[in-house]
Design a protein around this nucleic acid. Structure first.
Lengths: 180, 180
DNA sequence: AACGATTAAATCGTGTACGACCTAAATAGG
DNA sequence: CCTATTTAGGTCGTACACGATTTAATCGTT
């Protein structure tokens, strides 16, 4: 119901050469770019598919994490902190692709909730180091099974998911290259 | 730099049977679920790849749409409205996967900006119908080339993108099924 | 030692998202 | 008819996300 495999122009095209292709198509009076039917207005837009999948992931994780008092982003922060002694705000930003203007309020909320500890680096007073608090480590242990629950809710072949992840990582990498 | 094809457990697994596989792996003392290295804490999490790709898409579109005074979501609304005479708030919510509590303030901002028109349905006073305003139609025409710009910034084969889109649509559909 | 440039966080304002709740209009049963 | 329920939007509070700006600490050069 969600898929229309027979869609003639099912997805966006690729690369500079594909852009040229599309430009030619438009010049030839083809269908306007990035449009679909009234029923599925975004049938040709890869960006929308990613947007919709992200919404869906966020909602599902929200359900599973809410009982533990976590949001999805807070969960990601805990996972990142569980892999290291501590991380600076900047290091967290690098792995999460976020800036301090998003992380600082988030980390303060998490500190207020007793999940993490923030302290200035003694060597460089500009740097704030963030580490798991005991309660945070406890929650990490509690939610270790959450990704498992998510996976068990899906009915898709492993190979597809592996391929998809590699492709999406590549896509994200390409998109980040294009952003000044 | 972004990819590690040789990663032994490069992605999440799939389906109930995969969940069982993972459970067995954990019981056998395998690596904890959904964890990566300190360098790449989310190497095994498909959800993170989608999250990161969405962030990247949003940032790139933001750059391209800002000169036209649009946000990414406002752009999606305009695209949806360009495909139909008008749409009710509920219909917009269906195609965008959003609720009225998100759409109402958004649509009011867009109305204030002169992009859309909102009016109560005469037949059913509960319903609000949203249509493109002249300025909105003008902006739609101006941003028709934006997806083209995004595509031209990518260096990925068309086939990969087509496959990816189909797979991500499937993923979103499966995730939505799992959300109560 | 001094001072301009750089860097790391933080602050502020705007715009999504969404859970919880509310209001008004339409509809279903009696 | 007339109330009970349902339905469509809307409001409110909280939490991301990010552009623009600010503050404070460090560095580089003299």
């Amino acid at each position: 119901m969600e898929q229309t495999p027979s869609d003639p122009l099912d997805t966006a095209l690729s690369g500079p050469q594909a852009a040229a292709e599309l430009a030619a198509q438009m010049a030839a009076g083809g269908p306007p770019l990035a449009t679909g039917t009234a029923d599925k207005p975004f049938a040709n837009m890869l960006c929308f598919s990613v947007y919709a999948a992200q919404l869906a992931f966020n909602r599902l994780y929200k359900q599973l994490l809410a009982p533990h008092g976590l949001t999805y982003l807070q969960y990601l922060v805990l996972v990142a902190l569980a892999q290291a002694e501590d991380r600076t705000v900047g290091e967290l930003g690098e792995v999460l692709f976020l800036e301090s203007n998003t992380l600082t309020p988030l980390l303060k909320r998490m500190e207020a909730a007793g999940l993490v500890v923030r302290r200035r680096d003694a060597e460089d007073e500009r740097v704030v180091r963030v580490a798991l608090a005991p309660a945070g480590a406890e929650v990490v242990a509690q939610v270790e099974c959450v990704p498992l629950d998510v996976l068990s809710a899906l009915d898709m072949p492993l190979g597809d998911l592996q391929q998809m992840k590699a492709a999406i990582d590549r896509l994200g990498s390409e998109l980040r290259k294009s952003t000044t």
